[in-house]
Amino acid sequence: MATEQLKKIPFDLAKFKETSEDKLFEFVDIDTVTSERITAPRYSYWRSVLRIFFKKKINWVVLVLLALLFILTFIGPFFWPYSKFENVTDASLQNLSPTQCFDRFGFSLKWCLGTGQYGNSIFYGLWSSARTSLLLAIICAAINMVLGILMGAVWGYSKSFDAVMTVIYNIIANVPYVLLISVLVYVIGAGFGPFVLALTVTGWLGIAYFFRTQVLIIRDREYNLASRCLGTPIVRVVSKNILPYMISVIVTLLATEVPSYISMEVFLSYIGIGLKSDVPALGQMINDGQIGWTTYPWAFWAPVSIAAALTIMLYLLGQNLADASDPRSHMQ
């Protein structure tokens, strides 16, 4: 019906071609190769992460400050050897303010922050303590993260393992953490090694549980099903399909884990179940300094500010790195 109506309309092709608009256009063949081409610049995950991360000025500042702090804590103790009880017999050296020290010894770095209750140099003590605390935090975080992520990945992926692990988790997670650590420290003794063991023996469980939930979210996505249809072994499914999606989750975890172990050491040393008293650590120093913190503030505030600076900067940096490692932030 409609076509018959169309036929009635007179159409003069020659006249149509004469019109000026027609002359402005010409036919172009479809180029199938060009139509498939992608003109957007190449995407690289890690380059985009760095680009987003370094776009924020604050990250540069924090990174430089943190690098300075790390150099001081890891190299400082070689130049400034610290012995807590070197002046313990000389009562006149106890709890001196920086000005009192300068009056006695003249200006030197060693006494620029005064002395503590054993006549110990606060400045020297600070870096040795920070080194212990930072090392402890990094080791504990590394062990817990590696164990937690590997166990969590399997925990989330395997249904039979899930049933067993959830029961174990429910039992252990209900034991108060401080109680568990204090019992462990009493049983295996104080010291750096036992302290690491106490913090890691159950510490990974929380991370594994968190990670398991994350894996569970993406486990049954269609692309994992597709990998199954292609016969991909589980190890490669985990390493190629699951872990790459977890990078921002892992960085976020790391951002909270490292500072949390610094605080944990400070807290446990403060309540007296941490390292041995002659091992310099930030918690230990804070514990020593808090006795007379109103009268001799330098002995208290120096370690507190270093602990605070370390945790805050690590946390800030980790969070910003986690933000940058989220691919959703890579869109321009």
Partner: peptide
Amino acid sequence: VRKIQMIFQDPAASLNERA
């Protein structure tokens, strides 16, 4: 697995975005 292959419905979900 090799002989019988599958093509999935949602092309947005069936490709590994990080590969």
